[in-house]
């Protein structure tokens, strides 16, 4: 029987951008409801796949299992829990090892990144319940479930509807050795000294970075790049941005830097970079971020970024549903044919 994995990150969407920006809160109750919808969506196909959930200590998975539709085989993974991002990575690794046919992720960029690190080539339906949501789509959970079912059951061939998202590798050389980081949409360099509350707070602190995609509809550095360039998530390569004070900048861009934060950014330079091309930033004192979150504190370091093509295989939900419809997945014939005429 085809299998779908479901990751609901209980911690997604709780950071300081609720205070400093306009990010909304998706509480556990809402996440649970979205997850319920996903399971319901899986039943849209004639022979629904079974589903396995990442467990959590918030009771989300327990609730969802209790509410699961009767026709669905649903169970929780058995993995140790730490109440941290390690739980997500461990679940993703387990899903890959178990050979699930598709994974649905409820979270933001951070959660999707944690899944991407371990998930290999399993198709991922990424649904936004986080803060910085460049990669996940804002689709209804039910629809996401339908898409996952279509892909997992092979009703729609995955190859037709997934795109390989890029990813960005950062490698920092510091006086204390090498440090590494992976981002999906953007790796940022900030002049802030500490990770602090993680979110990139001040536009003035942004020194630049590399994006694997660029569109004005994105959030953060990909939106800045998107003001000047257009790069699809599955285009090879990306964009290198070097920023400066808008007062002294040769040009500026208005962009949504975070939910609820639109700022003018001074652009020193912007250039397309090819896949695997190394670009470097000197970081005397700063932090390298991934997808809008500060991750790596650096001093006297040089950080090298490369855009790689082998990110997660993301399912295009719209395309999947259209293909499913085209394949007749939803238009069912009455079981015994039309009622017979009496005459």
């Amino acid at each position: 029987m085809p299998r779908v994995g479901l990751v609901v990150n209980p911690a997604a969407g709780r950071d300081i951008r609720r205070l400093t920006g306009g990010a909304s809160v998706v509480d556990d109750y809402a996440k649970r409801r979205v997850a319920d919808c996903v399971l319901e969506g899986l039943t849209a196909v004639a022979d629904p796949p079974s589903v396995r959930l990442m467990p959590d200590r918030s009771g989300i998975a327990d609730h969802v299992l209790a509410e699961a539709p009767d026709e669905l085989e649903a169970e929780a993974l058995e993995i140790p829990l730490e109440r941290s991002a390690a739980d997500t990575r461990r679940a993703a690794a387990q899903f890959r090892e178990d050979g699930v046919d598709a994974v649905v992720v409820l979270g933001g960029d951070g959660t999707t990144r944690d899944v991407a690190v371990e998930i290999g080539s399993v198709p991922v339906v990424s649904v936004s319940t986080g803060t910085n949501n460049v990669v996940p789509s804002a689709v209804d959970g039910t629809v996401a479930g339908v898409a996952a079912a279509l892909v997992a059951t092979g009703t729609v061939p995955a190859a037709d509807v997934v795109e390989r998202h890029g990813r960005i590798e950062a490698r920092a050389e510091t006086p204390n050795g090498e440090k590494r980081l992976v981002a999906l949409a953007a790796a940022e360099v900030s002049s802030r000294s500490f990770i602090g509350s993680r979110a990139l707070l001040e536009p003035d602190d942004l020194v630049g970075g590399v994006v694997s995609r660029a569109h004005p509809g994105d959030i953060g550095l990909p939106a800045v790049a998107g003001a000047l360039e257009s790069v699809s998530p599955d285009d090879p390569g990306g964009v290198l941005l070097r920023l400066t004070d808008p007062e002294d900048a040769p040009r500026t861009a208005r962009a949504a830097l975070a939910p609820g934060v639109v700022a003018t950014v001074g652009i020193e330079s912007v250039e397309r970079i090819g896949p695997d091309d190394p670009v470097r930033f000197a970081v005397p004192d700063g932090v390298v971020g991934a997808d809008g979150e500060r991750e790596l504190e650096l001093t006297d370091a040089t950080v090298e970024f490369r855009v790689r093509a082998d990110g997660p295989r993301l399912v295009d939900v719209d395309a999947t549903l259209s293909a499913g419809s085209g394949a007749g997945a939803f238009a069912l014939e009455a079981a015994d044919g039309p009622p017979a005429s009496e005459d």
């Binding site: 709780r14 950071d15 300081i16 951008r17 609720r18 205070l19 500490f194 990770i195 602090g196 509350s197």
Partner: peptide, 11 residues
């Protein structure tokens, strides 16, 4: 309302 890492003084 927000959640921060209480093991990190900078956060």
């Amino acid at each position: 309302g927000l959640t921060v890492d209480g093991m990190d003084i900078t956060a």
